[in-house]
Design a protein around this nucleic acid. Sequence first.
DNA 1: ATAATGAGTTCTAAAATAGAACCTATATTT
DNA 2: AAATATAGGTTCTATTTTAGAACTCATTAT
Lengths: 171, 171
Amino acid sequence: MKWHDLNDNACPLARAMGVIGDRWTLLILRECFLGVRRFDSFQKRLGVTRHLLAERLKRLETMGVLERRPYQERPLRHEYRLTASGKEFAPVMLAMQDWARKNLPSTEPIPFRFVTRDGGQEVDPVLTDRISGQVLDHRSVLMVPKSQRHDDTAGVSPPSADQNAQDLSAG
Amino acid sequence: MKWHDLNDNACPLARAMGVIGDRWTLLILRECFLGVRRFDSFQKRLGVTRHLLAERLKRLETMGVLERRPYQERPLRHEYRLTASGKEFAPVMLAMQDWARKNLPSTEPIPFRFVTRDGGQEVDPVLTDRISGQVLDHRSVLMVPKSQRHDDTAGVSPPSADQNAQDLSAG
DNA sequence: ATAATGAGTTCTAAAATAGAACCTATATTT
DNA sequence: AAATATAGGTTCTATTTTAGAACTCATTAT
């Protein structure tokens, strides 16, 4: 599979991988959330090659996650900012960082915090249901396939893939 | 930067990229959440090469996200299951899928749903603070660098990277 | 005896990434 | 005036990763 084949996949997770499915893109977005906007700042802070950085910024722009806008003329210079779409990625970032803290431990001190804008208190993220307020995790939620009609995909037989797709919490 | 250089990074997001920072791993985990457990099922459903699948499953096992356990002898066969750590990834998956649905639109129907175990209602995920219950997004939360002591990283000057790291919502 | 299943491994070719040098336009320093 | 610095890239070769297909091995089914 090639990079951009993911972009028109029916699965939203696959499309997400078309954006952040590499080693650098999420780190570029992290820098954006930390306030970095310029090519050289990204490059120096991340240590990514200029070549790859240019390519990734272009991709993120094309995907509508970042926008490139001039901040001066003579000479013309542009900076990269999160779009509305990019900003809405914040909860994913928060959830992922929380998972990694708890499940991929390190002896090093964590180099950032997420704090409330009013008050500056460090946050403790938990995913909930908008209506019921119920906590959403593997205990409370089940991922179920919607049956699809395409007879060419050998081996796919929702809703029961393999022997039992049901009990994920028992795994 | 090489793949496994990310695994001992001080930044939890970088460490997360050491696990899911490629085009396939998250899709493998998606299949796990859908109940897939066997090598050939993953391979046929995803269309990933056997070579890469074997390598990724091994990595996920090493990282403690999946465990490999025998499900029969004669001949000996193993299956892959989510560990506690792997299951705790569910909220990240949910948040990411929600972001992609809303921000990377597609004409195709979404091939799965997340439903409550009790009731089977489709969920509407929102990240909140565990204590206050406040919604956590780019409007309410700020990502701030913790000052680090290492004088070799040219150009890094928290808390104000670039001109203004402060106002991320104004970006 | 032959084919099928399940879980890989081993090849070669193609694609992506690393690392360094180069380019353009302007501004500043010597 | 000439040299150096800043900002944002592009171009090049070498290395690493991934794709794609074929092959292995042990056992069971036909």
